[in-house]
Design a protein around this nucleic acid. Sequence first.
DNA 1: TCTGGGGTCCTAGGACCC
DNA 2: TCTGGGGTCCTAGGACCC
Length: 420
Amino acid sequence: MKEIFALVDCNNFYASCERVFNPRLEGRAVVVLSNNDGCVVARSNEAKALGIGMGVPAFKVKGIIEKNDVEVFSSNYALYADMSHRVMRTLSTSTPAMEIYSIDEAFLNLAGCADNLTDYGRKIQATVKKWTGMPVSIGIAPTKTLAKIANRIAKGTPQADGVFYLKDLSDIDNLLDKIAVVDVWGVGHRNARKLKRAGIKTALTLKNVDIEWIRSKFGVTGVKTVYELRGICCYRLEENPPAKKSITVSRSFGKAVESIDELQEAIATYAVRAGEKLRRENLVANVLTVFVRTSYFDKQKRYFNSETIKLPSPTNYTPELISYAIRAVEQLYRKGCSFKKAGVLLSSLELQNKMQLTLFDEIDRRKTQRLMQAVDTIKAKLPEGNLRWAAEGLEQSWRTHFKRRSHRYTTRWDELLVVA
DNA sequence: TCTGGGGTCCTAGGACCC
DNA sequence: TCTGGGGTCCTAGGACCC
């Protein structure tokens, strides 16, 4: 049977997460900031109405925030990840097949689920709200790209009330005519500009474009997008996400870092985190890259650089990752630079149980594996930061800021919601 | 003063091989 | 002295997504 896609999208996800545990925020303008409390990454509808843009630096909207008493939060990833699990678990009860597309979105295959899919969508919407407190919008259509558009319509038209089924392909043209080409999934700002120059401004004109022309200018991705708009499915539901191909841990510093010791501490800390991610996915890495950079906005003394190391044997052993990462910093460090951001990238990943053993390995892999298992288990039981590798340093004054983080209500006993 | 983080895929071009 | 053509693999950079 042909797939019918529902795209379920949490409304203003991070802002809504804050609201679920803080009813005082209901009806008020709420924004959530990125790491280091830098940019606005989520806004309640009220905050959007005040003209606070997505991705704008917080300092640029400080005036609006103060004048309108906007509630401001730092990102609370522990809370958002847990809320995401709850929503996804709830959704899984309403469909035989789904794909978790991002922290706040999932594609469901609704083929054969009900006679009236709009009603069925409403039922899903109500269940998620009741079980998790999260408001969602649902777009239903024969392809993912059209489901994305249906979701937009579900959100943007009051009559739809959060659920919209793009059912009759004959109606589609009227709707596509009103969608700007930049709002089509897969068309970014750059390609939108390029399309505009060729006279293609709406989703409808894009749908009707000549296929060979689009292939020559935009490659196969462009062709797929056009077919999807025509109702021809090019992107199937991915139920089992393929294994990760790379893992990155990177952060902006809370303050500029100038000494090599601090830069190495920070990189060691990121390497530790990267190792944990690796082990959680049962992966090992063959290649480690470290990058450092000064502020993007410091035009005078700009310095971006990276160092890539081919590891002698695939590993997820933290001390090994730390030592190579620290060595890379020695290559990258420049005296007199104010480093503002750095990161560790692990790539050329493979499954741990399939890994190629090196003949002359100096490390007893079985032993280190048990050691890392023990460390991970103990760390999970201790309060954050209580168990650390020496290389991570003690003071960590470079740490990223989260000055307005709410409680991690759902994942920490000491931060439970208190009902007074 | 203050501008996020983590991914994927595609393509073009170079290196290398026969 | 003459100096082809086709294939694969890898990498860097670009574009996109949330």
